[in-house]
Write a protein that binds this DNA or RNA. Structure first.
Length: 556
RNA sequence: GCGCCCGUAGCUCAGUUGGAUAGAGCAACGGACUUCUAAUCCGUAGGUCACAGGUUCGAAUCCUGUCGGGCGUGCCA
């Protein structure tokens, strides 16, 4: 809707400019904002165009507004009335037929309502979670998974070609530590005396894996292997085992990936070495103190960073440079990385690397997801990764279910800390926003069930929509009209939480309407129109929940 | 010390990329079920947008400084 109005304003300005009533040098560079009005007295939509253009034209905002209004097709088609208000806002009052057309459009487009009609020529690689395969996913990863997966759905709905990827850190020192942890636990399980090393993985899951190994061919061979080989074998086993557990947890959460990308591949294929050479060719590498450094001079990060240690081992940063280069070489136009907020210091480094490789640093966008605190009975549950005492994503899923978990993770902006109230997530009342929204869907479904039981004709062919004259009905329809704009704006801003808030508002409008008005009334034309309306509500709720990856139940 | 994020009603948070009179939910108080699901709805009350300056037609939003909270600042990941 906003796009339609924007083009009306744009052509009005262009017409005025052509007739020399308005002097605009470069219209394309001016950003014309169309916004929804808060107060119905200001119409349905408003634009600040006149305020934005005033400076460039040398006229007063209200004069510019008057010129624009003169060139708008008022009274014909969608614009019923237009007013100039305040400092120079132009308020649009839309014709009733516009809103009726919105309802028809929802019925026509069904599950694609709100989706972009045309695809955008932008290939996106969205990388998220990418937790190290050294232990099960915890709730913090769950938030990243919910944000990432929803963002993927959102961007696809907006016409982007999106691939999702999980980067597996299956190389390097921590794999050795993981393997060594498992080896020690294995020896412990088979009765040897061990002292568990410092800074190793103490979680119960390592002990469980050790028990699994007893009696297996690998387990029997471990005793006779040289130490480094045994550690390597244990690392391999533990990594694969943990990674498949992570995949299972994500699947239970409704998250699947287009690809898992293994870091090991970068080492084995020579891509890592090539990436470092590319940096060196561009003069971005400096050798000092026995190590190879990424030279930050002229780049965005504050100091030089080591790429290859004096021991000859590459750092994780080196692998990340190679990984991002690999992504870009695969032809993606936009890379989106979703990281935990504790990695924020890493952003300028990777961005500088992308830039040093000859790409615009803008091709990389990093979303930082803040921490999650679990709350039970009003008390925060303390978590400490170090001691191995953390609440896993699996446990939360088993307690509250994937729908509530996903929805809750999306009730805040990413960059805001999230308190996840487990009791609230399980509660079956309006306090719980998941149920509140899902219930709106179930209620509409219920109306149609009852209608079928009563033998009411609920076919949706061309009802007279002019009978939908109640203010609540108008508000509902106008909110349905907002949905495509919300999708576009949420996608552009990379802010999936906007969809969540939209749905809560829609559910609120619907519940209020439902409470005060009967859909299955005696008056058959009203009944038909209201069925048409609530079905459209159901459809949009379903579409929005689908973006969030949350089910839309027909009964609750 | 330096860097990033945050600071909005008692609590948890929105705020349409700088717009018109700053909004919800929870908690509190008062109401509504012979109904298509009360898993719901309606009403009341609640504010120095942390603080101080600046930028302009206009600031919760942008810039500077101060205070407070979180996180970084490794040849760790």
């Amino acid at each position: 809707m906003k796009e339609v109005l924007r083009s009306l304003v744009r052509s009005a300005v262009a017409d005025a400019a052509q007739r020399n009533v308005l002097a605009i040098a470069d219209l394309d560079s001016v950003r014309l904002e169309i916004s929804r009005t808060k107060d119905p007295r200001f119409g349905d939509y408003a634009t600040n165009a006149a305020l934005a253009l005033a400076g460039a034209t040398g006229k007063k905002p209200r004069e510019v507004a008057a010129i624009i209004v003169d060139n708008l097709p008022v009274g014909q088609g969608m614009l019923e009335r237009v007013e100039i208000a305040g400092p120079g806002f132009i308020n649009f009052f839309l014709a009733g037929t516009v809103w009726q057309d919105v309802l028809r459009q929802v019925h026509q487009e069904k599950e694609t309502y709100g989706h972009a009609r045309e695809s955008r020529a932008v290939r996106v690689l969205l990388e998220f979670v990418s937790a190290n395969p050294t232990g099960p996913l915890h709730v913090g990863h769950g938030r990243g998974a919910a944000v990432g997966d929803t963002l993927a759905r959102l961007l696809r709905a907006s016409g982007y070609a999106v691939d999702t990827e999980y980067y597996v850190n299956d190389a390097g020192n921590q794999m050795k530590i993981l393997g060594n942890s498992l080896l020690h636990r294995y020896r412990e399980v088979v009765g040897e005396q061990i002292t568990f090393p410092e800074n190793h993985y103490r979680g119960d899951y390592v002990v469980e894996m050790a028990s699994e190994l007893v009696g297996t061919p690998l387990g029997r061979r471990l005793a006779s292997m040289p130490e480094t080989e045994a550690v390597e074998a244990c690392a391999q086993y533990a990594c694969d085992r943990i990674l498949s557990g992570i995949e299972d947890d994500l699947a239970a959460f409704g998250v699947t990936y287009d690809a898992y990308f293994r870091e090991r591949r970068l080492h084995e294929s020579g891509a890592l070495v090539q990436a470092l050479e590319a940096l060196r060719d561009r003069g971005k590498v400096e050798d000092k103190e026995g190590a190879m450094w990424f030279a930050m001079e002229g780049e965005a990060d504050e100091k030089d960073r080591v790429l290859v240690r004096a021991t000859g081992e590459p750092t994780y940063f080196a692998a990340d440079v190679a990984y991002h280069q690999d992504k870009l070489r695969r032809g993606y136009d936009l890379l989106i990385d979703i990281w935990g907020a504790d990695h924020h210091g890493y952003v300028p480094r990777v961005r500088a690397a992308v830039s040093a490789l000859g790409y615009s640093p803008d091709v990389l966008r990093v979303l930082l997801v803040q921490f999650v605190t679990l709350v039970r009975e009003g008390m925060k549950i303390s978590m400490s990764t170090r001691s191995g005492e953390f609440v896993t994503l699996r446990e939360v899923l088993e307690e509250v279910g994937p729908d509530a978990a996903r929805f809750f993770f999306l009730t805040k902006r990413c960059d805001s800390h999230l308190d996840f109230d487990l009791d609230l997530a399980k509660r079956q009342s309006k306090d719980n926003p998941v149920y509140y929204v899902q219930y709106a869907h179930a209620r509409v479904s219920s109306i149609f069930r009852i209608a079928a039981e009563r033998g009411i004709d609920a076919t949706m062919t061309d009802p007279d929509l002019t009978v939908l004259s109640l203010p609540e009905e108008q508000k509902l329809v106008k909110h349905l009209a907002d949905y495509p704009d919300v999708i576009v704006e949420a996608a552009d801003a990379l802010e999936p939480h906007r969809v969540t808030f939209y749905l809560m508002d829609l559910a609120e409008l619907f519940h209020g309407y439902y409470h005060d008005n009967k859909v299955l009334t005696e008056d058959s034309s009203v009944k038909k129109a209201r069925l048409y309306l609530v079905e459209a509500v159901r459809q949009v709720v379903a579409n929005g929940l689908d973006i969030l990856g949350v089910t839309a139940p027909e009964r609750m």
